[in-house]
Design a protein around this nucleic acid. Structure first.
Lengths: 169, 169
DNA sequence: GCGTTATTTTTGTCTTGACATTTATTGTCA
DNA sequence: TGACAATAAATGTCAAGACAAAAATAACGC
């Protein structure tokens, strides 16, 4: 029943290995973009990809689709906009909002990035079966969901050192 | 044979899901440390954990164990040292090197952090079987290795737009 | 309508990661 | 030995993620 959670040696712990793989995916992709002379980061690409799917989103909605916070989105959009890949337009009814639109140049860029990303991913997954990938997705989603559902204060907060169940009395 | 690499919708792509899980592991752990009143980040913890395993490493060796670059290690050590958790001492034979030692306070902190991290990880993996975890480790390691072995310039470099095989002629 | 609360975006700070450059020291080899 | 390359650490810059706090606008309750 209980999982064997290897914390040491640290380099073999679950979190460490997950971080390493995800980190390499990101930096490897960035290097691939660079090598292809596409001056864009993986994060910026994800925003362009989101806009390709649905254009004219608010910054908040955009942030939600790519699971970044709104402050980060503001800055990524600053870069994309100054590069001419994206355009912010005021919301017709709500002057607090911007609607974000991808430009022609942004669309072209998005296509090139996606081509490189596809090639990169193929190479990243050499030696894996389709089932491996399915498992990886399933497991990753469960982990992400579990952590999302957590209440750190309740679990690790002051005075809650050990007791997980039976908080009262 | 060929893997089905879902690139769209972007939120369901492999890289996106891996990033989300790893990201939540990191930020969730940071929040857990905060909630437990331990003013330390997951990265700093990994360095303390590495030192718990082997004390007196050079900064370069330490960086290699936790797979960070040396510049990042310099800065993490600055923080750990100013917090009194770690101490840099000159290498006896090589004046370029520092050897890094964990202090008593660092050891205590490390233990507390590890306790919280264990509890956190338990919760993060609710609903997973031991085999799921093993698969996750195996698959993540393959991905990390694949990307490490990649040569971005050769694969995506200028003029290599499409051809993966048969570059020569 | 008016005051309070919420929401949207922006800006600031800090930590981390990637990359380039600098400085000090060591190693190599002619 | 003495020039030149290699290595260790530190420093600087930028992107990004997390967090706090500001300003503008909208929504709500009375």
């Amino acid at each position: 029943m209980a999982l064997k959670l290897t914390m040491f040696p640290m380099e073999q712990s679950n979190g460490f290995v997950m971080r390493l793989a995800a980190n390499r995916m990101k930096s490897g992709l960035n290097r691939a973009f660079q090598a292809a002379n596409l001056e864009m980061t993986a994060e910026q690409w994800s925003v362009l990809a989101a806009l390709r799917q649905q254009d004219g989103l608010s910054q908040t909605d955009l942030a939600a689709t790519v699971t970044k916070d709104r402050q980060t989105m503001t800055r990524i959009l600053d870069l994309l906009e100054s590069g001419g890949h994206v355009q912010r337009r005021p919301h017709p009814n709500d002057r607090r909002c911007n609607l974000v639109f991808i430009t022609t140049s942004g669309l072209k860029m998005q296509q090139k990035l996606t081509d490189v990303a596809e090639q990169f991913t193929e190479h990243a997954f050499i030696g894996l079966t389709q089932e491996d990938l399915d498992q990886l997705m399933r497991i990753s989603r469960i982990v992400a969901q579990n952590i999302n559902d957590m209440d750190p204060e309740a679990l690790f907060g002051p005075g809650k050192a050990k007791q997980i169940q039976g908080g009262g009395r």
